[in-house]
């Protein structure tokens, strides 16, 4: 069973999602990884605005490979989310509603997810060619000098993801492995 969800994420949709749900996302998301998170944090420390409206937004932890002529993007799979853990609680407290990545999150991120009723989605790591097919447009909107690490505004159509941590803090990585452990 698949759920089709619009992004930016409404409060109602965020609360309806449960760990283990297979979801197709359609709408607008933003890419940011290590270097862009560092810059966003520096902006906040200096009292400057973030490069996009974070309220209700979904950030995709992803740095694409270069696009060929006539295509919106190159390979576009998730990077390891835990490297962003240091920066994430502050963004969630500002209204970030969802994140797409891969791998485990820190206890502090989990608390912030629960506190703000947010969602952490996993995309399948290493499926960058397949996932790129869901991206219909991409535009660099900030930190262009960072190359692949620049912030991109993406339009996606049915981007396949799995709810890994829901607003209740249920973590699929913890529960799923137990089922098949010998």
């Amino acid at each position: 069973m698949e759920k089709r969800i619009r992004v930016p994420l409404s409060r109602e949709d965020a609360l309806s999602l449960k760990a283990g749900d297979y979801v197709c996302l359609t709408g607008t998301i933003y890419t940011a990884r290590d270097a862009a998170h560092k810059r966003m944090q520096e902006a906040l420390e200096r009292g400057k605005p973030l490069p996009f409206d974070i309220r209700g937004s979904v950030i995709y932890y992803m740095g694409p490979s270069p696009a060929r002529e006539g295509r919106p993007i190159g390979s576009a799979g998730p990077t390891t989310a835990s490297r962003m853990d240091k920066y994430t609680p502050a963004l969630l407290d500002l209204g970030l509603a969802g994140m797409i990545g891969k791998g485990r999150r820190s206890p502090a991120v989990r608390e912030a997810v629960m506190r703000n009723r947010a969602v952490y989605f996993a995309a399948v790591g290493g499926a960058g060619a397949l996932l790129s097919k869901a991206v219909t447009s991409a535009e660099v909107i900030a930190y262009e000098d960072l190359g692949t690490e620049a912030i991109r505004k993406l339009t996606v159509e049915d981007l396949p993801v799995i709810v890994c941590m829901d607003a209740e803090g249920t973590d699929l990585y913890e529960t799923a492995a137990e089922e098949y452990r010998k």
């Binding site: 390979s75 499926a127 960058g128 060619a129």
Partner: peptide, 9 residues
Amino acid sequence: DRIPICQDT
């Protein structure tokens, strides 16, 4: 489609 298998090449 000549898209790298993974974006982390």
